[in-house]
Every structure is written in structure tokens, then in C-alpha cells.
Design a binder for these strands. Structure first.
Lengths: 224, 224
DNA sequence: GTCTATATTGCGATAGAC
DNA sequence: GTCTATCGCAATATAGAC
């Protein structure tokens, strides 16, 4: 849409930075162009001038975020590492990308929660692609015997990305009651990942929730 | 705010039903009172007449949703069952409440993602309370030896509610690519729960992610 | 490129008829 | 209790001065 050389202009960059932060924090509907302009310290009219309106600006920003994520995924797919390490790196990717695109996670998660009309079809392809990446890793891990054979890769993929990602938003409410850790975000991601990996590979029985004793892994019943 | 007897009036009920569905689906900022009135098939002015405006209506609805959830939690706390079964029931609560308040999960999750000014302080107390319930169950389960001793209950609580809840929103994008299961929502919740429970109680080593071999459970390193 | 001023639309709320 | 008409306001976008 807009060439990258345009994004180098200081005024354009100020708009991009302010808009990215605001959209990520408050969501598309709750942010006004005036607020973006004030935050960026530029004139309101310049947003239409450079981007052709609020919607176009939003679409441009989201596409940029997905580019960053897809690059990350593409690199990961090429690496000669096992599937378990791939999803490990994916789960920690939000930390790895913190410097480059610190709001990518929030913006994408927002688009999942509140699909914008102007971006829904694009978002769908990208989100599905992201899902397939995780699912295929899980499938491979099951095939290799790293994970238990009864793990459902399609659904486990949703569990993994949910577990690792939603915490970004819970921080607002739970941030000050959670015990302090050296690097809170990374600590959380690693905790969640560890639970997932153990839960995916373990064939151990779950205490107090199994009616039969010697059943195989998949027979471990969760009570009604 | 409004007495329950008022909610029995057919017009009021139509407004409540339409507004709950719309707020849950699109979020507070993206819904207009006109849209609510049209969906409910009542006159626009009646929303102000009965509820005193859009914000008041939203606050009223959210409070109702939290009442349902808190009742559920309060009942759960009184039951003479173990902590593992308590969180199991909690995780499946969205299914248990489907009949009574089918939009509770969505509305609460929305309030976490996009805190509304008019409800943030109230929401904080309720969400923190919900978090404490889960965390205390996890603590107890660790103390009883059901879960591994190095599980961090504060952070694991966030992981659990994230894993079990976020899927509601991913369905829009992944709904048609996920393989069909008899009862999709329940199936997902149980899969996520099973992963969590196994991950919480297991002391098994994770394949391909551990550098040292014979380390104890807490020493299981996730690679950088 | 940047600004001011303004056009235009749609929102939420309410006064007043019925 | 329900409706119509309208007010006031804020939002987006743009025309045109500089």
C-alpha cells in the first residue's frame, strides 16, 4: 500500500508509532484519529493525507505486524530443529519480537477477539496459517513419539496459543497481585509452556480425576 | 440498579437479550443503541427510559453475568470435593452455565481485553476474586501432593483460565478448519483441561528440551 | 507538507405528543 | 409505555490557505 520509503519520513513514523500503540492498547473502535494525531504530535489532517483514513491506517499497521510474525515463522520452519523446540521458540516469540514489533501480539490477538470488517478476510488467512504451523509441529511431535499418541494436534494447538497469549491482557487486572518475578512476561511464557509440554508428553495418571486405575493414557477420564 | 421484577417486563427482557448478545459479540464500543433497539425490535428511546443510557445498560448486564459466575464459584467452594475436581468443574463451568447465561464468558473475557471505564473498578474486584479461587485450588493441590511441588500456583492459574477460555474467540477463525467433534466446545474444554492437569501433576522429563538428564522436575530447562 | 476551518455523518440522549 | 422529532456532540474526512 504505502512504500517503506514513505514510512521513513519522521511525520509518518510518528503516526505509525502512536497509532500502533493506541490500537494495541484500546482497540480499533475505541481510538479516534484525533487521539492518534495528538499522541503523535502531528496535525489531524495528516492521517488522511498519508494513509487515506483511519481504516486504511489500521489495515496498513496490521499487515506490518503479520509480516513480522510470518518472517519469524518462516525462519523457524527452515531451521533444522525438532518440532518440540520449534513450538518452544514460537511460544517465546513474543519475547523474541519485543524489540522489533512490541505490539504484534496485542494487535493480532485483538483482531481475533474483535474482527474488523476491513481486515477480517486477510486476518483469517494469516491466523489459519499460524494455526497450521503449530498444529503441524504437534503432529510431527506425536509421530516422533515425543508427545502422547492420543494428543489431538488440532485442538492442542488452540490450547497452546491461548495459554501462551491471553496473559498479555490479564496483566492489567492481575499485574499487581501476581508475585514479582525477574522478567514477568518471560517467566509467565515459560511456565505456561512447561505446563503444556508436560501435559502433551506425559502419560501419567491424573490424581483424583480417574475412576479406573490401570487404564491407558487416553482413558483418563475427567469427571462430569 | 433495576429491580429483577422490572426485568420480567417483556420489553425490558427483549432489550436485555439483544444487548447481551450484541455486547458479547461485538464489544461495547462497536455497538450502538440504535442497533440494540433494532435487534430487540423496540424503540430507541426505551433504552434510556428503562436503563438511563448505554453505559448503564452495559454495567447492569455485566453485573448480572458476574452474579451468575460468583454463584457458581460460591457453590463450588462449599462442596466437599478435592481441589483438582474443583478446578475441573470450574474449567467446564462455561458449559454448565450455557443454559443460564450463555454470554457470561464472552462478556467477562471482553472486559479483560478491553476494560470499560464505567466498569473497570468493579470488574477488577471480581476478576481478582476469580483468580484467587483458581490459585487457591492449585495451592491446595500442590500441598496435597496432587500437583508437582515446583508448580507456581499464581501463574499456573493464569495459564489455566487462558487456555480454557480464549478458544471462544478463536472459533470465528478456526471453527471451520478444526475437525468436527460431537460437542465442539465441551471437547475443546476437556482437551485443554487434560493438558493442564497432566502438565501440573507430571514430573516426567520433556523430550528434546532438556539439556541435563537426571535433573529433578524443576530443573527441566526450556531452551532459549 | 502542514495547517485551519468546515462539511458531513452518526451517535446518545431527551422533550413532548399520544 | 411507546413513539417522533430534535438537540448537542464528537468523529472522520476534506477543501483550501499558507
Amino acid at each position: 500500500m504505502k512504500s517503506d520509503v514513505l514510512a521513513a519520513k519522521p511525520t509518518v513514523k510518528k503516526i505509525i508509532d502512536a497509532a500502533t500503540r493506541l490500537f494495541a492498547t484500546k482497540g480499533f473502535a475505541a481510538v479516534s484519529v484525533k487521539e492518534i494525531a495528538d499522541t503523535a504530535d502531528v496535525n489531524v489532517a495528516l492521517i488522511s493525507y498519508y494513509f487515506g483514513g483511519k481504516e486504511n491506517l489500521y489495515v496498513y499497521l496490521l499487515e506490518q505486524q503479520f509480516v513480522a510474525v510470518e518472517e519469524f515463522i518462516a525462519n523457524l520452519e527452515q531451521e533444522k530443529i525438532g518440532p518440540v523446540e520449534k513450538i518452544t521458540r514460537f511460544a517465546l516469540s513474543m519475547l523474541a519480537m519485543k524489540g522489533k514489533s512490541p505490539f504484534a501480539e496485542r494487535l493480532i490477538l485483538r483482531e481475533i477477539v474483535d474482527p474488523t470488517e476491513c481486515f477480517e478476510t486477510v486476518a483469517k488467512k494469516k491466523i489459519v496459517r499460524l494455526h497450521y504451523f503449530i498444529r503441524d509441529c504437534l503432529r510431527e511431535a506425536v509421530a516422533l513419539g515425543h508427545f502422547r499418541p492420543d494428543l489431538d494436534p488440532d485442538y492442542a494447538a488452540v490450547t497452546l496459543s491461548s495459554a501462551v497469549r491471553l496473559h498479555i491482557f490479564t496483566q492489567r487486572y492481575l499485574g499487581d497481585i501476581l508475585p514479582e518475578r525477574p522478567d514477568q512476561a518471560e517467566y509467565y511464557a515459560r511456565q505456561a509452556l512447561e505446563i503444556f509440554l508436560r501435559g502433551a508428553c506425559s502419560s501419567r495418571q491424573i490424581p483424583n480425576t480417574c475412576t479406573d486405575q490401570g487404564g491407558k493414557a487416553s482413558g483418563c477420564q475427567i469427571p462430569k
